[in-house]
Write a protein that binds this DNA or RNA. Structure first.
Lengths: 344, 344
DNA sequence: TGGAATAATGTAAGCGCTTTCATTACATTA
DNA sequence: TAATGTAATGAAAGCGCTTACATTATTCCA
């Protein structure tokens, strides 16, 4: 007996390539390629035919093949240290806004804190994944930046300053200065700084501004009043970090009259701590995330979205004009007064 | 003394390729490739030699070339609709956690709302950028999902349910039910639902739970008590959206006794609205973002990090075992009681 | 209406890797 | 020592695309 049963081979829907399309459309692969690259010289008729075929089988050029052949990928990579942060989110949304107007795709690469931090960053460049890079809140030593420069790839730094690259940042010293100065102007003398990981670059700058404001007002600087929480997750820029720090401040140096804060999110924790300890002092946050408005939190505004937007623009400009002079853009932070600093 | 002069080298340092390394190390390109792919049969001596050379010139295989030749890229792509959202952030951090243990790179692709939403999503798959995809809060019709399935690529859905893919979600109906039930249990009768864009899938489900709870308690359902703000940016899941909605509720239906909310972030706005109008009613949020704890906000907890973590695991499992049975994982939301529902 | 100018298409050589298969070098064993 | 097995390496054929450059169709004007 003859077995006539046919095995239905699970038909692997092999991805179609440019050859398949070319064949079906009766043209050469070059023409197909042209169609997908809006190259000028393709007649309207062929274009339509190719597009029809491509659409029918769901064809689209593969990114890796394109990338290899053309040495471009129409991709911008945002490199950020740990993602879950309000500052990044805002910056990112500015980047998106700009990208929407251009034909670039955004990829986000996360580097994790640790000893091999620089290696991770360098690794990203080595892979040559993108045409340009946005480094957000990545802080390196000058010689490390210099080393990255060797890769000859367009890079724009956000929230960091280095002469060799286009950078977009905010004057952190000035921001903290303004906040502290405001408190001093309101008559407070013993002002604490709610800090975070000491080695963090923004913290360093903000402390400097805080100290300068005290000094300019003829007030003594007391290291004891610079306090951070013990939870160092995300460098201490967390609700918990703020809660812990404020608890310390209120219990260990009860004579404190006011407080400048390294971030809004920490301020949220600090507010809770004050509530729990049933003691309220004026407080100024930092960043002006959307939340701050709804919490009545006075703060120092950083134009985060603008920064993202502008940095992206700068980067794209460099694609088209690599010889463009390197630019450093520094925004001025703005003091926003709300309920948390009202005199009671 | 440190030399701090300006860079002037214009010379594009040509990226070195596998050939350069092979030549300098005196081996064939195949061997170099093997070294970079921890392939077994390379003698320790050659391995070291190759690595030394590669390190010297800063060589690393190019992703596009690798991707083309091997048809893999060791990359997972997370597809999300608009990035700046607390829910995504938390899920993302769960994904990162899992990824850290494996050797995959994460890329994030943003789709923007609009008429061509589906096209954007499909486009991502067409490019074949990654080996697997995590779709976060992407809601499509069944036939659309079916269409994506044709691409034969590993996909895991987060915060969505569809039988054809592995999915990880939370029972939104139950979550809203629990919240509403709690309020009813506390004696409130006129309970509002602070909503967002009506067509949003989570909103649909949550409303269903809200209605069911009312019905089960023998309470009437009043469409007028389901309110959203007018600002629809991010589908209305914003502080502002919450503020507007609560303002409406309090002014148009002043007899309302309590409120269930579609998200914590909206609850923040709602809290402010209550404060501004000087009227407080019990409120329950949704999500349990970190902030909620520090704001004393009762809420429905979604295990966001766990979801991200588990979904990633599921996806990676599928790489190694494509024939694995498709799984639907549904988490149970948890009611977290805090100050915002305390009886005054 | 011929022929130059121009538009449309095709040919083929890579892009930088991976991978199969063949080859070589070396260690074992009888 | 010859035969055999195994580990290490190399040669070469693609992967799916872009892009000079070459070739063929069209167009246009004197």
């Amino acid at each position: 007996m003859i077995d006539t049963h046919v095995f239905k081979t699970k038909k692997q829907t092999l991805a179609s390539t440019i050859y398949d399309i070319a064949k079906k459309a009766g043209v050469s692969i070059a023409t197909v390629s042209r169609v997908f690259n809006q190259s000028s010289s393709v007649s309207e008729r062929t274009r339509e035919k190719v597009l029809a075929v491509a659409n029918e089988v769901g064809y689209h050029p593969q990114i890796h093949a394109q990338g290899l052949a053309s040495k471009k990928s129409n991709t911008i990579m945002a490199v950020v240290p740990i993602i879950s942060n309000y500052f990044f989110m805002e910056v990112l949304s500015g980047i998106q806004d700009k990208l929407l107007q251009n034909n670039y795709e955004l990829n986000i690469f996360n580097v994790t804190a640790g000893t091999d931090f620089f290696n991770q960053v360098e690794h990203v460049l080595k892979r040559r994944w993108a045409e340009g890079y946005l480094f957000i809140s990545i802080h390196l030593k000058d010689e490390e930046w210099a080393r990255l420069k060797k890769y000859g790839v367009p890079i724009t730094l956000i929230d960091e300053y280095y002469e060799g690259f286009d950078t977009v940042s905010v004057d952190n010293v000035q921001g903290a200065y303004k906040a502290t100065q405001n408190l001093i102007g309101n008559g407070y003398r013993r002002i604490a700084m709610l800090s975070a990981l000491e080695t963090s670059k923004p913290i360093l700058d903000r402390k400097e501004g805080y100290v300068a404001a005290l000094k300019d007002a003829g007030l003594p600087f007391d290291e004891e009043l610079v306090v951070r929480g013990d939870t160092l997750y995300r460098d201490g820029f967390t609700e918990r970090g703020g809660y812990e720090a404020m608890t310390k401040i209120l219990t260990m140096t009860p004579e404190v009259e006011a407080c400048v804060c390294a971030s809004d999110i920490q301020a949220v924790g600090a507010l809770k701590a004050m509530q729990d300890l049933n003691k309220t002092i004026p407080i100024i946050g930092y960043d002006d995330i959307e939340l701050a408005e709804y919490m009545g939190l006075s703060t120092i505004r950083q134009p985060m979205r603008d920064m993202g937007y502008f940095a992206t623009q700068t980067l794209i400009d460099r694609f088209t004009n690599p010889e463009k002079a390197i630019s450093q853009t520094i925004y001025t932070p703005e003091l926003i007064l709300r309920g948390s600093t009202d005199k009671s």
